[in-house]
Amino acid sequence: MKGIQVRNVTKTFGKVTALEQVSVIFEPGKIYGLLGRNGAGKSTLLNIITNRIFPDCGEVTLDEEAIQERDALLGKIYLMSEKTFYPESMRVREAFHWTKMFYPDFDQAYAERLAAQFALDTGKRVKALSTGFLSIFKLVIALSVNTPYVFLDEPVLGLDANNRDLFYKILIEKYSETPFTMIISTHLIDEVANVIEDVVIIKNGRVICAEPRETLLERAYTVSGPAAVVDTFTAGRDVLGVETLGGFRLAYLMGTAPDTLPKGLEKAPVDLQKLFIQLTNV
């Protein structure tokens, strides 16, 4: 089996169970959205895959080989994490130089071009970068590193709307030129909804959904109308949640919507962010 396979991984921090029996597959050449609420276990999962922390049990393989402590396999993965692990006194261009040392396919010229596009001063030291530029700095490396697997943990943290837009454009451009596996972990679901192909949702340390975005969205719909009619319709169905405003009610449902609805009800598709909220509420 090609790709990254996470099998029955459990990780606890003291009394807190960050991940519980998590099994998920990340196939080559796909863009994944790793979604979950704060503290759901997204970063923990990415950190385990990249050998930064060890699971209590379970294993992670890349192309059927255990990743743990294997330089050759770890060199195929790059994780841009929220925390910066580049030395504070290091200049941006020095970071490019060292990245090239560790990842031979790192395209330094491309990184310089991206830095110019984002107006990132490569002569600056890491400690002198603002939150936004720190994200840009790490993004530039992640986009230039040319590893088969790139993980982005909160990639647009502190980025203004213009830079976020530029990032998504470059990301799609890069992916269409040479497809690679990208896992984007973010809370800005609306922004990445059209970029990601597959969705992995983690709730309280468990994977509750791992499937193509389109399939997931096709399985959900909303009905709205007078509260009483909506209640009658939803009885016995898989209701994710309801929103009520006066006598008007909106219900989120999983399953296939009937072709015809009772009079007074309207059916509509659900967007990913709304569906995520309903799936992870409570």
């Binding site: 990249t50 402590e69 692990f85 990245t99």
Partner: peptide
């Protein structure tokens, strides 16, 4: 501390 962070960030194992 700093070397561990930087090297782990760049896919280097603890053994290396």
């Amino acid at each position: 501390k700093e070397n561990f962070g930087m090297l782990t960030q760049n896919g280097v194992s603890r053994k290396s």
